[in-house]
Design a binder for these strands. Structure first.
Lengths: 176, 176
DNA sequence: GCGCTGATGTCAGTCTCTGTCATCACCTGG
DNA sequence: CCAGGTGATGACAGAGACTGACATCAGCGC
């Protein structure tokens, strides 16, 4: 991340990263499938937080309640694990490069699919579960963007709640 | 697309594509920034359909109405331009390869941003517009997946309408 | 015919990523 | 204490995506 922040992602060669880490290029590729993957290590665990929160919710929880539970759990972990400053630094690197945005979108799409599967396991229908999975990711993404914006002081969890509330105002009774 | 369908995306070299097209590798890269980009040419125009539909809607149209207008227009174009069989063939290639999924997600993210901007231009707030932009893409994606599924006979537009209706049932009154 | 312009070819080179084999530390059983 | 197995690393060679620089050549206006 130091190198990426200094020279940019593309200008930083894998050889340079490996040297800084004190290993060879070959070893780098044994730990990371990809040059981009450096910035996305540990995404599966993050996914697990969302999924577990849905699975652990009390029986009879509404679909809406499951979404709130997943978002709260995910948001809290992200806040507490590394903090906002780290998130900002990482986010700056990613938003500066399309290749990295692609990879992030792929990870988010996987998160959406995981949430969808967890909702289906709780009895939701296929189509609504998929839409809800996308919704979770969308609300998370929008809240995250606000969270790392300069000057923002509110909690990520709070911003997510706010976003979710905005969604329910989006689609009034007369949809379709 | 012939080559991709035969040998798969990764196994197909740019040299092979160029040869089939009767040009050199260098010329290929003058027309496509990327090997993947071959499958995503003309995405800007598709984006334009959504944006134009929003801009062209009669004054006073509700936010919901704008989303319906955008989805209807986009769905219709996709159906009429190349047809379902072409969409299926292309979709098979993309779903078989993660690199291509990444690129598709990036294009969809751009579509979302474009829709967001169009909604903001119609007076929507920043946060709801972003969520609505994501929503449009989400509904489109879910409907498209159903549309290209084997055995499906319904219209893309119809499936989108159906998806949008499912969304409004997702978020009842007591959200947040 | 002259010179301009745009499209293409040629060539050399960088960088990412992969397969293969050698090396070396560490452990384990005899 | 040593033979042999195992896992991590290094060393190399090579394929393939992409880029920059320059050459070529057809078509066009003058």
């Amino acid at each position: 991340m130091e190198l990426f922040a200094e020279d940019g992602f593309e200008a930083t060669t894998v050889a340079a990263i490996a040297e800084r880490a004190g290993v060879t290029e070959r070893t780098f590729f044994r730990y990371f499938t990809d040059k981009r993957e450096v910035l996305f290590a540990g995404e599966e665990e993050f996914e697990g937080v969302f999924v577990d929160a849905i699975a652990a919710a009390p029986e009879g929880t509404s679909l809406n309640g499951l979404l709130v539970a997943a978002l709260d759990a995910g948001g809290r972990v992200l806040q507490d694990l590394r903090g906002r400053d780290f998130a900002r630094a990482r986010n700056d690197i990613i938003t500066a490069n399309e290749q990295l945005q692609e990879r992030e979108l792929l990870k988010l799409a996987k998160l959406s699919r995981a949430v969808t599967a967890a909702l289906v396991a709780r009895g939701a229908g296929q189509v609504p579960a998929r839409l809800a999975g996308d919704l979770v990711v969308s609300v998370f993404g929008a809240a995250f963007a606000r969270w790392v914006a300069p000057g923002e002081t509110r909690d990520l969890v709070e911003l997510q709640r706010d976003g979710l509330a905005a969604v329910s105002e989006l689609t009034p009774v007369e949809a379709g």
